[in-house]
Design a protein around this nucleic acid. Structure first.
Lengths: 211, 211
DNA sequence: CTTTTTACTGCTCAAATGAGCAGTATGAGA
DNA sequence: TCTCATACTGCTCATTTGAGCAGTAAAAAG
């Protein structure tokens, strides 16, 4: 009996409290802390709930060890690949490479296996404005993940600085000379790459469904 | 003086030990555990190192609280939003809803702010095969994140089971009757929605750059 | 009505723990 | 040489903590 999901409301609440502390990066609460959080007068009540959760397999602990409570489901996770935080900018400032952490308007956290490469210090994310890359199926509102530094190759998508804001273009070689091309028939003009500063090379994309 | 990086070899080793325990998901070691790990005869030595690391700002702790050591660098992170693991399938099996964890071929980990919604037990990811949704800018090889359960609305993208494999279609209402439409002029046929089982509604997309 | 389960209060106790004192030793720098 | 920082041993001590006993109460199950 009592495989796991059969938790009473109170038991679930205790589990939830412990989970929330853990998620906040704090040590797991002691019995007395649980008791005081729920307004119990006795720590025994908390201890009792913890023991029940332990018995039902919702929690794991090392007996006698202070603050050793863990969520069972966390331990059984087959260890997803490492999750990295990539700074997200609304637009890239001209000066690049110094205090990027500060100016980021947020961050994108993804596991490296999903985005398919190992980000570096020069990896950043950008919210796409405009439909200049619709021909490559990159839409307005998408978040693109770019890498600053590497020399772009023919056909790769790059972010370039135009009129103080970064725009996505396709990097092409024509007669061995580099050009940038917008992937939209509306304004498919070719711009010599030397005139623009290339901010980064396209690596991945994340899109939310719009409703 | 002693801003942070000026740790002696031994101090760095102690810090490293604490970090490793934390990374393993275990509670932070007690003074005595640190001492026994390094072969110290006295816990005071460990306590001394911890106090130094605390003073130098490498560690953070709540005084008097057992096992409350944390790495300073972890806390200063502007706390990205919670990262969730979404099971990734090559194709969805017909029987749905039971032991999905087992059959998953991997998992996608993203923070919920980036994908724009709170995943549930019924959220899953799928690798896109074919170009049937190219008109909605979903390409072969993309990973789509879907939610099983909710009633689709007109114009939403859904995964439907066709010939034992799931395909992406647009859900449309025509004369108040539901149809599924492929977004590719090559085979833009309309299929009555009753004939197919809808597996989930499109919520987000992740694409790797191909080289 | 009786039994069981859940949910507590109030209390005790031993082990675990953080904190720290006094003292030893070693090596670096002044 | 003297001083200072690092790195310990051996010890004590007040708290924190897990663990548990005896008893109460209410609601659900039989």
């Amino acid at each position: 009996m009592s495989s796991m999901r059969e938790l009473s409301q109170q038991q679930a609440a205790v589990r939830e409290f412990i989970a929330s502390q853990l998620a906040l990066g704090r040590p797991s609460p002691s019995h007395r802390e649980i008791a005081s959080h729920f307004g119990f007068a006795s720590s025994y009540a908390a201890g009792c709930h913890v023991r029940t959760l332990l018995r039902k397999g919702a929690l794991v602990a090392e007996p006698g060890k202070a603050r050793s409570l863990r969520l069972a489901e966390m331990l059984k996770t087959p260890r997803r690949s490492a999750v990295v935080d990539i700074p997200l900018f609304g637009s890239i400032p001209a000066g690049f490479g110094q205090d990027r952490e500060q100016e980021a308007e947020g961050c994108v956290s993804v596991d490296i296996h999903t985005i398919g490469f190992q980000p570096t210090r020069h990896t950043f994310a950008l919210r796409v404005v405009g439909d200049s890359m619709i021909g490559r199926h990159i839409c307005e509102g998408d978040i693109v993940i770019l890498e600053h530094g590497p020399e772009p190759r023919h056909g790769q998508i790059v972010a370039a600085l135009m009129d103080r804001k970064s725009t996505l273009k396709t990097f092409v070689l024509k007669n061995n000379k580099p050009f940038l091309k917008a992937e939209n028939p509306k304004y498919a003009d070719l711009i010599p790459a030397e005139e623009l500063m290339i901010q980064g090379v396209f690596r991945a994309l994340i899109r939310k469904a719009r409703e």
